[in-house]
Design a protein around this nucleic acid. Structure first.
Lengths: 125, 125, 125, 125
DNA sequence: GTGGTCTAGACCACA
DNA sequence: GTGGTCTAGACCACA
């Protein structure tokens, strides 16, 4: 369900947070669905339970999951996060465009690059 | 010439590297120009000289500056870096587009967003 | 009769205790009235019977209900609790006022806020 | 500077967060002031450094302090938090009043209690 | 079984 | 010296 990349310089707990965040946002994990238990996931990934605990605490703090004591962690309603996530992406896009303009890349080159990429990848509109 | 943001979570040496990298890439610092001395800059920024030293070492490792013993650090020829920098930007653009497609954003929405932004900002083509 | 909020961070048994306590204190449940049986309530709320058992034990310990073996749980006389409950509220009020004074809020601002709120809500005096 | 109450049922890290939050909000700790280092404070309180670490991480997440890697933790600008804190107090006040009205306490009794308390305590307006 | 907190101790990056 | 991450392992509350 999830893979840790030990070559990735980001901390493990952060990778776990990001992986689950995407699984929840793209609907692989649905609202009310039970998350794997802290201990189970720790065993599966050969990671210390404390590290999973930390990742789950962060996911709960951000509103992606909620905890029921003695029962486990469950996926929250995610609709409002999907819009937030889109905004986040557009913000990142703006940052890239900003760098691009400063480096002398034109709007035309950017859009052309995107359109070419989408055809090659066969994704998108 | 340069400002450190202590609230930025990135390490100080990395901020120094990035700031100088941009100054060099956008031509504010020209080839053969002398960099401020390690001690001077450390004083100006109220930063440990070790930190500046580390930043300069990194800039040299990446080829942006070169050291002449006893004379100081100087800006390298930067033309080839400008192309590398553009590629870096296009790579970042690809990553954003990838996230966008996974979140259900279409190529059309992306290019439209860029074109609208460039008109409002009055930058670009 | 009662609803559990699984997103509430408080343990379930505590929510059950508090809900019944209020129902008893505000007279929705009258003295000598029979409480729902542990099993019935557990079924209704899809909760582990142990959890209800624990809540009832706590309610009994605090004197809100009493148990008759083989017959069930019943609501106690509650008059004395009403005064205790009022005292509890005044204690909470004192704590809030204490924080308020430390934050530089004056007595006048506090009473004004209360009086304004009571008019808007249409409750109170 | 800070005392842990081991009889308090709240976790230690939470007590540490709350204590520092108040010290910052009431001005005992001023913006840009250095927090005690994780290790020092851990020694002083005879607490594991991990627990202090957790408290500081929470304080940073909430914006009360910021971390400079290799240097330490520093108090943030707090003006905006003071207003938030006042709002928090008024919200708690509203909750208490709500309980009070449900228990049959009138607005008059509440304000009278507050005014009497403020005279006895000699604080307030 | 399930999560929450804490200690002890290690190792790393940064200044 | 300073914070950040992680492991190993314990103990507790809750269901």
């Amino acid at each position: 369900m999830i893979l840790i990349d030990y070559r990735d310089s980001r901390p493990i707990y952060e990778q776990v947070v990001d992986k689950f965040r995407l699984l929840i946002l793209n609907g692989s994990l649905k609202p009310e669905e039970k998350m794997p238990s802290v201990r189970t996931l720790a065993m599966d990934l050969s990671i210390n339970p404390n590290t999973i605990q930390r990742a789950y605490a962060e996911l709960e703090r951000r509103g992606y999951i909620y905890t029921v004591k003695g029962r486990g962690n469950f996926v929250s309603d995610t609709d409002k996060f999907k819009d937030e996530y889109k905004e986040e992406i557009f913000t990142r896009l703006d940052e890239v465009c900003d760098s691009a303009y400063k480096a002398g890349i034109t709007t035309g080159e950017l859009t052309e690059h995107i359109e070419k990429g989408s055809k090659e990848g066969g994704i998108g509109e």
